[in-house]
Amino acid sequence: MKFTPPVFEVKNLFYQANGQKILQNIALSVLPGDYCAIIGPNGGGKTTLIRLLLGLETPTQGEIKLFGQDLGRFKRWDKIGYVPQRAAQLDQNFPATVLEVVKMGCISKQGLFKRMRPEDKVAVHEAMVKMDVLDIQDKLIGELSGGQRQRVMIARALASKPEVLILDEPNTGVDVVSQQRFYKLLRELNRQENMTIIFITHDIGVIVDDIGRLFTINQTLLTCNNPKEAISCEDMSKLYGIDAHLIHNHHHH
């Protein structure tokens, strides 16, 4: 049995900014194929944690490993697809077509001016098919609805054929039908392609049946391997100041 290291492994992680303690003593590991949700109050450090995992911020203390390698030495960023906050609200006037934006997903690994290899073109095409944006590939980003833009940004993240997809509250400004379609897609990526998914969200009710693990972050971390149990747990809402009404399960099958 070959040992596969965790996708992310974090130990003893502290982060301070401007004298404020934002994250304290976080330890977590995310395994290949996990579907994790991260919830917690605004300002609790969820986005900061993701930025630390991606090397966009430097921890005050602690150790972060990606695929078994120290973050400082990690080079394979194409393995990680990232859809940042408010991706669906991208600058309306950004003068790029859908195809151009999705191609950017391959550029990170190639450098800006290298020509796309044939396999990159295939990956871009597949990502657009998967996200159902092929028929709008020549439209400008500014002409799209929030739901369409969201799908374009996820296609962009998928274009580098990542093993991990990290989404930071991707549903801001997206209608409910688009959201449901999006959850279904994530579920398929996770189950059929064994993609590891880390999903920051305010509302875990809608995906509680899909996720395997729940991380609650409010400076410190509460981990839960059975999200359904956490949701019935009132202590959690008290402890973390999360609105209980956000958390109840309103999935209709």
Rank of each mutant, 00 (worst) to 15 (best):
T220N: 14
Q192E: 14
L214T: 00
L165N: 09
I204G: 00
L214D: 01
C233F: 11
L189P: 02
I211N: 04
E193D: 11
T201F: 10
L221Q: 05
T196V: 11
N225C: 08
Q192T: 12
T201N: 06
C224Q: 14
Q179G: 01
I200E: 00
P162G: 03
E229M: 06
L222H: 15
G173L: 04
I217K: 10
F199I: 03
G173D: 02
V164F: 01
D175M: 05
G212Q: 15
T196F: 06
N218T: 05
T216Q: 10
Y183W: 12
E188I: 10
I204M: 12
N226K: 15
I207M: 13
F215N: 02
L186H: 01
I217Q: 05
E188V: 10
N190Q: 13
Q219H: 14
I166R: 05
G212Y: 02
E163P: 00
L221K: 04
I198H: 02
L189E: 03
F215Q: 05
N218C: 10
V177Q: 09
V206C: 06
M236W: 13
N194T: 07
R191Q: 14
N226T: 15
M236F: 12
I197G: 01
I211C: 07
A230K: 11
C224L: 07
Q179D: 00
V177I: 09
D203W: 12
T220Q: 14
N190Y: 07
K184V: 08
P170W: 06
Q192W: 01
Q219T: 14
H202Q: 15
M195H: 07
R213A: 08
I217W: 08
L186W: 05
A230G: 12
S160P: 10
K184C: 04
M195P: 06
I204E: 03
D235Y: 13
E169L: 05
N171I: 05
A230D: 09
D209E: 15
I207Y: 02
G205S: 14
T196Y: 04
L214Q: 00
G205L: 08
L222F: 13
N226Y: 13
F182E: 00
N190K: 07
S178E: 03
R187T: 13
T201P: 04
P162Y: 01
F199R: 03
N194Y: 11
T201Y: 04
C233H: 13
